[in-house]
């Protein structure tokens, strides 16, 4: 591979030591004489002193048709200029640009740099990846957060647990790439039954992660059983209450009826005595 490394200090040194070898042709360019000297001293690689965004520098170093061009200068725009020159004039196959402002990642890509790396951007991504690990979930984003691999562990309480994949209606916006079970990778097919403690590796777009996790972590409806029981108890209680009320009502009715009868009897008696007395008085007369 023909690799051009433009600018950079420690990063350049590290990358040079990574790719140094017979299989790679390294072209190292650095704008600073001091840095160039230390790079020569430490890595024993030829270093050209020059501005990597100038055409004549790339011409002198014969960067034509290089496989990779890595721009590691301090200024974002200098790296941009160097990458553009390498790409358009020297037809380099892949340009990689280091930036400090994370906002430039998407912008430079839109403008034609193949790969843009920002340490802040990567840091922010990995922090977000770590923080979404709610004990069980890990996410890994690829291609600057356009594709995500989500890892989730199946618990026995989940709805999907114990069912074959063909029966769980797995959402269309994601797919199970692999199942990790007992230190072995299982390539999923419809017949595989998800077991507790399986780790699912799922691929999806970043905007679907929440939906996907919500789907995977749907708890089986264990809670509904006690609820049904409670509901039944409630019904029984209510019925009892109704019965008791009825019972009381009947008691009250009974009382009322008996009292009414008594009254009736009393009235009859009184009328009887009254008629008797009337008859007596009539006889006397």
């Amino acid at each position: 591979m023909k690799i051009v490394i433009a600018g950079g200090n420690q990063q350049a040194e590290f990358i040079i030591s990574m790719f140094k070898g017979k299989e790679n042709e390294l072209i190292v360019i650095n704008p600073s004489q001091e840095v160039a000297d230390t790079l020569v001293k430490r890595t024993r690689v030829k270093v050209y002193k020059g501005l990597p965004w100038r055409k004549y520098v790339l011409e002198e170093t014969n960067a034509y048709g290089a496989d990779v061009f890595i721009a590691l200068c301090e200024s974002d725009t200098d790296n941009y200029g160097a990458c553009m020159m390498a790409k358009k004039v020297f037809s380099v196959k892949k340009t990689i640009c280091l930036v400090t402002n994370p906002k430039n990642v998407d912008l430079y890509k839109k403008l034609g740099v193949d790969s843009v790396i920002s340490s802040t951007y990567l840091l922010a991504q990995s922090i977000r990846g770590e923080s979404s690990v709610e004990s069980l979930i890990k996410t890994l984003s690829l291609d600057n957060d356009r594709v995500n691999v989500v890892e989730a562990v199946v618990l026995s309480s989940y709805e999907i647990c114990g069912k074959p994949i063909k029966d769980i209606h797995f959402p269309r916006y994601a797919s199970i790439a692999a199942i990790y079970r007992n230190y072995q990778i299982i390539i999923p097919n419809g017949l595989i039954v998800l077991e507790p403690k399986d780790t699912l590796l799922m691929v999806t777009a970043p905007e679907n992660i929440k939906r996907l996790l919500a789907y995977v972590q749907t708890e089986r409806d264990l809670t509904s059983a006690p609820k049904v029981f409670e509901a039944a108890v409630q019904v029984v209680k209510q019925r009892r209450a109704v019965k008791e009320e009825n019972h009381e009502e009947t008691k009250a009715d009974h009382k009322a009826k008996t009292s009414a009868k008594k009254e009736l009897k009393a009235v009859r008696r009184s009328t009887k005595t009254a008629t008797k007395s009337v008859a007596k008085t009539a006889k006397k007369k």
Binding site: W53, S75, Y80, G81, A82, M84, L111
Partner: peptide, 16 residues
Amino acid sequence: GNDNVNLFLAHVSATI
């Protein structure tokens, strides 16, 4: 005063 800044701005203004 910086050619690379000028280049970047020209690209941004014309394309984006």
